[in-house]
Design a protein around this nucleic acid. Structure first.
Lengths: 193, 193
DNA sequence: TGTACATCAGTGAACGCGCGTTCACTGATGTAC
DNA sequence: TGTACATCAGTGAACGCGCGTTCACTGATGTAC
């Protein structure tokens, strides 16, 4: 059947949004096209009217995740007084909520290792998205030059992503809470120089 | 045919060693039983004489990787004067060699995200291995109590694992080198308190 | 205004493929008598 | 000492399954005449 002209775009956006969640939840290999389309009450055959390949979807899902996470962090930071922003960023990133919900969280923590294993072409695209995400966070970082602030953002966020991953792998709830709490102090101190 | 009594143990060890490399290289989902056994010039059917499941192999491969990495870091640290050990650890971990060879490197950086997605039973076992790896590194960390040193090791190594993952995802060689170099300074400073 | 045709998002069966796992079998050696 | 049998690491075909991808088809709407 024929649909309204904005219909296709809306479906495409729904696919990207759902994929963004599912990839972060289950990993690049763990989330499949069929299950994704079933969630949206569509059939898997239609997928290729919207995307050339699963890799292309992965890239767009990663972009959406980086946008979402960037907006969340920027929103929290902007709402705080300037001298509290770094601490708010660290506290938000290493919160129990973020730890418990990888599907709504940082793509570097959830998908970083997957990106290292992508074919060259996709890895290049994903890498650019990751660094754009760091660049967006640069304005909240200390540093004399923009380059120094971007570098600082890349270091702080990658470091926090590692600690968040260890926390997510830690099944004991008390140990996980302790690690996150210690991580907030550790990374806040590291971020300040 | 019948084999010498030590033969089975030797084959098992070869499987674990190869799996440890392959999992770190390709990820938990990317490395399969058939390819692994083919590398060892065995057939995949024989695998189940040695292991109950792929998950069990993953646990043992992770243990082997943690042992290997722990021994490498401890060896480098022990060879350095006491007050240089932290810096040697950070320089070794964030070296270009470690970045270029995930298959011989830190299991937290290569497999951390995979561990968060394991079924509960396996995740518990893997989590214990990760924390034992941190505990082994604790003796080189500053801190008043053993708990504080273990926590510091967990924070430093998880943080460095995140930065290493970002470096591995960064396809531009110059940017990767810069990130690793800046990372060595950043994490060395963070580790010292 | 009515009719014929083009469009194209979505359908659902089918493709080949590799996965983890199972199983009947092989055959050299060790053990029992 | 010779013979019959048990052992068991490794073989290779087969299991069902889900994967990414392709494709002939559907059918409501828009367009051309």
């Amino acid at each position: 059947m024929r649909y309204a002209p904005e219909h296709k775009e809306a479906t495409r956006a729904r696919i990207v949004a759902a994929a963004s969640r599912r990839f972060r939840q289950a990993g690049g290999a763990g989330a499949g096209i069929a299950g994704l389309m079933r969630e949206l009450r569509l059939t898997h055959g239609g997928f290729y009217r919207h995307f050339e390949s699963k890799d292309q979807l992965f890239e767009e899902a990663l972009a959406a995740a980086a946008d979402e996470m960037g907006a969340l962090i920027a929103g929290r930071a902007e709402a705080a007084p300037p001298d509290a922003r770094l601490r708010v960023i660290v506290d938000t990133y290493l919160s129990e909520a973020h730890c418990a919900h990888p599907e709504a969280g940082c793509p570097l923590a959830a998908l970083g290792a997957d990106i290292t294993r992508l074919p060259r072409r996709s890895r290049d695209a994903c890498q650019r998205l990751l660094w754009a995400y760091a660049a967006r966070m640069a304005s909240y970082m200390p540093g004399a030059t923009l380059d120094a602030r971007v570098e600082r953002a890349a270091l702080l966020f990658s470091a926090m992503a590692g600690t968040l991953t260890l926390a997510r792998a830690t099944s004991d709830a008390a140990a996980r809470r302790r690690l996150l709490e210690a991580g907030r102090a550790f990374h806040a101190a590291a971020a300040e120089v």
